[in-house]
Design a protein around this nucleic acid. Sequence first.
DNA 1: CCTTACACGTGATTC
DNA 2: TGAATCACGTGTAAG
Lengths: 213, 213
Amino acid sequence: MDEAPTQSNEYSSSPEGAASTIASKNIVSERNRRKNLNDKLLELRGAVPRISKLDKASTIKDAIDYIQDLQEQERNLQAEIMELESESLKKDPGFDFEEELPILLRSKKSRCDQIYDHRVPMSHPIRVHELRVNSVGENTLFVSLTCSKDGDAMIKICDIFESMKLKIITANVAIVSGMVMKTVLIEADMGERDNLKIKIERAISAVSDHWST
Amino acid sequence: MDEAPTQSNEYSSSPEGAASTIASKNIVSERNRRKNLNDKLLELRGAVPRISKLDKASTIKDAIDYIQDLQEQERNLQAEIMELESESLKKDPGFDFEEELPILLRSKKSRCDQIYDHRVPMSHPIRVHELRVNSVGENTLFVSLTCSKDGDAMIKICDIFESMKLKIITANVAIVSGMVMKTVLIEADMGERDNLKIKIERAISAVSDHWST
DNA sequence: CCTTACACGTGATTC
DNA sequence: TGAATCACGTGTAAG
């Protein structure tokens, strides 16, 4: 690939003038490339507030450290925001409407989570029309569930997804012409997402009346 | 500094063997330096989630863009935290939950009214419970809005998203236990999505009543 | 002197 | 084929 300049190919087959032409073209091209790269590197250094040295290598290293710092700070800030949100939600003794909106994760909440461990109150089962569990990207699972909206099907579906301890990224419920559609994005790396897929399918099939598994 | 290799100094004044020795030393040293620099560059690429090409220049450019994205996100998150803190501190510990949920948004509600005032009348404002505007993938913006379903809140929300000239990929409205949830996927490249984010947040805040009165 | 860091020109390789 | 990218060896300053 890039090793061992085994032999210098003379390459004098071209007429005399051509070689110098292409050579100079290559020279100016390479010069431009270097210039561009150095400019980019300088711009990168301008974007990083903390700089150890003015080396090229140090510039890159500082940028890496800074990026990792920013990523960690972002995680901390988001965790803090979640903390604040749930905290301001907490004091509401009158109405607990939020139990029907399991949008964000944060399952450290309270009880009434493991209702669906084994049994589901099978008052009347859900009529599942479609269930899709697809892998999206590297560590994301996309779940799309459509069923008829009879009785408390909607609440049941939400409860099912809450009973499993999923790392939910986003969740959405929609009603379209008498159909309940739930769309969930779940964080799951390659190792666990196959298991999760089966787990979700089984959880749904456990509360549906006809779902050939 | 680094210009004009005026003339190749022959420099054969040294004994014959010495030149090759120092040359080989310089060679291996330079080789090491290059290796180190490339490793650093590779590591930098590993730290950046979004990668356009596997070029050196593109790697650096992507890193710069990513750093600027992270910096802006950090600002937004910190503003959000301050908002949440001040809000949850100064409010009476009563039970009007709508006023304790509002996230994001800053500004003084005086600006950017001229853009939307002619379109959405302020008959009675919307009670926004949650507004999320996230970047998903490369050129997609994910907007999730939850508010109480009183009056014509639903129509207003749709009007807002129609008044802005967004390239909407998918849009969805759901009603869950008295709450209106709208989910929108918007096409927006890296350059405009930050602006769009602020624009959407302000548009929503212009017709919501969180902390005003 | 020796080390470190750079820019340069050049041959190779890939698309 | 060219255009673009790369690694290499070398000369050259600064510390």
